[in-house]
């Protein structure tokens, strides 16, 4: 229990009558990289959004670093400090410059002095190869650049876990690579990652485990090698054949 960063047991979620997540069980070890894939509407995004409580669930339990996620605001706050998230549509703050996007949370939540926050932010911007854009506004950047800024922004909170919700789906094809490269670099740093994506090359390269979801259930869970070359479930096979074509 203690070495698992995330522990999900029998998680169930309904939107009114619609059963979105059905008996999800998942544990994620420290430093593990997990790729979640599956057809749209299968509940992958909903599942990872439960981990930092952007979505509530009705049944089951979810622990992050041993802290139970329930309606206790203190716990939610605690967990959100540890869990970063990168969104499909970046969700940068358009009225703040890139550097201000990055230093806002460290200054407000971690109470960092402005100078330290700026230094740290610049380091992360360098890491995502975009330091020269620090004083521009999000509206002046390309999609790929915005997503790299979004990654740097979540890193500034020094999260132990980073969630990616289809980070490359809203990008033009030629920009996917620059974002994936950053994510691969990040994976090598040893941070715990859960990534909803259809980028199978990325999954093969960095994932420790690939999870396949359909209709709110985890249908298959395996190493990337086994998952792609020797899928067990019929739905997985079907899905993979569709993706590859």
């Amino acid at each position: 229990m203690s070495e698992n960063m995330i522990e999900i047991n029998d998680l169930n979620k309904w939107y009114d009558d619609f059963h979105v997540l059905k008996d999800i069980n998942l544990s994620v070890r420290k430093g593990e990289k997990i790729v979640v894939c599956g057809p749209s509407g299968s509940g992958k995004s909903t599942m990872i959004r439960c981990i930092n409580r952007l979505e509530e669930f009705q049944k089951g339990s979810l622990h992050v670093e041993g802290i139970p996620l329930n309606s206790d605001l203190k716990n939610i706050e605690q967990i959100r400090k540890e869990v970063g998230m990168v969104f499909q549509h970046f969700n940068l703050f358009p009225h703040l410059s890139i550097i201000d996007n990055l230093i806002l949370a460290p200054m407000r939540v971690r109470k960092m002095p402005k100078k330290d926050a700026t230094d740290m932010a610049m380091q992360y911007l360098e890491m995502v190869k975009i330091a020269d854009q620090a004083h521009k506004f999000p509206g002046q950047l390309s999609g790929g650049q915005k997503q790299r800024v979004a990654i740097a922004r979540s890193l500034c909170m020094k999260p132990k876990i980073l969630l990616f919700d289809e980070p490359t789906s809203a990008l033009d094809p030629e920009m996917v690579k620059e974002v994936l490269e950053v994510m691969v670099d990040l994976a090598k740093e040893g941070i715990t990652m859960i990534c909803v994506t259809h980028e199978m090359g990325f999954a093969r390269e960095v994932a420790d485990r690939v999870i396949f979801m359909d209709a709110g259930q985890i249908l298959e869970e395996n190493t990337p090698h086994e998952f792609f070359d020797n899928p067990q479930n019929e739905r997985t096979k079907e899905f993979l054949s569709q993706i590859i074509n």
């Binding site: 952007l54 998230m85 969104f87 806002l104 949370a105 939540v109």
Partner: peptide, 19 residues
């Protein structure tokens, strides 16, 4: 998405609204 990004960064209600 703006609220979600702010929540994810751990910003409080007050900070989210203010900034």
């Amino acid at each position: 998405g703006q609220y979600e990004a702010a929540h994810t960064l751990g910003l409080s209600y007050f900070d989210t609204m203010r900034s």
